[in-house]
Design a protein around this nucleic acid. Structure first.
Lengths: 200, 200, 200, 200
DNA sequence: TATGAATGAGGGTTCATTCAT
DNA sequence: CATGAATGAACCCTCATTCAT
């Protein structure tokens, strides 16, 4: 890789990092491109060499950060040596929820304007070299479990949407219950959903 | 009520109706206060006599429109003469989902920036004279059912968030499945959640 | 007229005058809206209350200034008491050319982007109260002459385009001849054109 | 000519051709240097190795294209074997007008910002090897005619400006008459102008 | 109460030009 | 000669909010 290419990559990461900081601290609407380039220490025009607009950079960040978060959870789970499929999902759920609880900016950022479509793309189309395809990981988990899951995609959809939307409310507003109070409810419900999709 | 008060009320409803039309057709971000007052036929300054800003009017509308939608569903359910609690919830779910599917503008409007907190307020603090307290209605439904529901608020929370977030994705993007494909999954899952919260 | 309306009119004229000064001194391309409002002493947004964009204000100015110029020439001609139609046209031609020669900024301004369509509109759709309909004046001149002109509009078109484009070159670049050298050529040619369109 | 020189020439012609396409299709103001180099397939910096700016390239193109057009007309005229001087001019006029009518982009391009000075330079200072000196050709035509033309340059100036400006309006806006309706008027007027400059 | 002209900071975006490689 | 990433000034335009009437 030439010096120029390296420089390019540095600039781009600089912009990504800076944008992420601002998006998670001030929110995307209140973050202007001027803010981004000023803090990143580049000229305004430079921004447009790398990104189409603010929403382009946001989408790439959502993809990257979501992937990162899920893979952190997955790695932690692997270290624990959990065997059972249900237990794996519950572990990941708790890990992700705890992580988001300590980083509300990240939660607000990846939840706002996050649709299942964006989400799925984020998890199955890794952008950074280090990003992993969570879709493949999920399929592997199912296979390891014996592969007796009906409609695995819909099941994941139900689980993620349930956890995501209730977790958002609990973490951000402690309403109607705190995250700690919510967890047992979620765990019970998620286990039931999995059971319901498991063929015997 | 004096003539002046009546006039005031007319202006206010005018602004509310106009805002709703614009919010659901163009989205709130692309709707300016100029747009609203122009179509409502009042002066710009007048807007500020009634509302603090665009988001003030939005919150009041979410409350009003959500309440309206739920009460429509509730009334339709009553006409059907459904007895069983589970069946009631399922009926309301289907009614609301169908309604939102035919009015995506409304869905986008009440879903975006809709938190459980806003939602609960909407359903328990009727603003318009005709609005009904859905919280009381829900409690009545539980009582009619024999009152053997544990943590009814958390249960409702889980159900609403699950239906809301999955329904949004299906209706708006047909992803990962269409609304019609989603419904049986939701019905089964919601019934299980209710069962899980029902004391025997 | 209320105080507010007066104020409005003053602001508008202020903007028109300022724009004209800048357009004729720096050219329209190099004049920014910032320049205009700064010199006019109003806020940027104010500009957009009165005009759609820079080209809107330009078109109105061309209309106004062309009309003004032609009517000055016409008035001067009337004072001279010239009777003959040909002599009238020649007088107006010389008057206008001399005027433009002393005000090259005006010439550049009304000539650039000036099409016959814009021109005709300028001369027949007076915008300011004081503007006069030159189209009517021209028709009156022809009538006074005995009305024996074939295709008067085409004739005027030929004359104006000939004078305009050759005059522009002579005044602005002294090329291929100076204005004073050009005039006798133009006079002779214009008289021949009129003769050619005069029925006997 | 060395290989490097050839390469240079190819790059330059590439830029010229590309610019011409863009200028005549989008207009010069809406054509950016980025557009040009992108389509020409060279780097941005390369542009500045060959041309000072957009207007440098424009002037060279006007020269080249005008010359080309006139010589086409001249060649066609020669093939017709027309003898009479007046007839020659009329033939060229019609040829050029017809050509421009079928290529309005070219008309807009060579007419906008076209001054007699630029024009004359275009016709008398051939840039490309194949360009011909129309000035010399014109003088030859006059000589062939017997050389009894007074002020031949002024006469040409009057004729070209008249045809150019009226033709522009007719072709571009069909105003005040279409090109076909304009032609007989022009022919008659041009013949009279020539007659007027012809010594007996 | 109601008006709507005026504000002006701030937004996103473009693009001619430079210069290290 | 050729490159193309980087620049950053300048652009047009929007719009929530104010306030004199």
């Amino acid at each position: 890789m030439g010096k120029a290419d390296q420089n390019k990559k540095i600039k781009m990461e600089n912009l990504l990092n800076t944008s992420f900081e601002l998006f998670t601290s001030k929110g995307i609407n209140k973050t202007s491109i001027s803010d981004i380039v000023e803090r990143a220490g580049v000229a305004k025009g430079t921004f447009y060499l790398y990104f189409k607009d603010k929403y382009d950079i946001r989408n790439r960040l959502i993809a990257h950060k979501s992937s990162q978060l899920f893979m952190q959870a997955y790695d932690a789970m692997e270290k624990e040596g959990i065997e059972d499929f249900e237990d794996k999902i519950i572990f990941i759920m708790n890990y992700v929820l705890d992580e988001l609880a300590t980083n509300k900016g990240l939660l607000a950022f990846i939840y706002k304007d996050l649709s299942w479509a964006v989400f799925k793309r984020a998890l199955t189309n890794p952008l950074a070299d280090t990003d992993v395809d969570f879709g493949a990981v999920y399929n592997q988990m199912i296979e390891d479990a014996g592969g007796k899951i009906k409609d695995p995609e819909v099941m994941l959809f139900l689980i993620i949407e349930l956890i995501g939307s209730t977790g958002y409310s609990s973490i951000m507003y402690d309403d109607p219950v705190s995250l700690n109070d919510l967890k047992p409810h979620l765990e019970q419900t998620v286990r039931q959903i999995i059971a319901q999709y498991t063929e015997d």
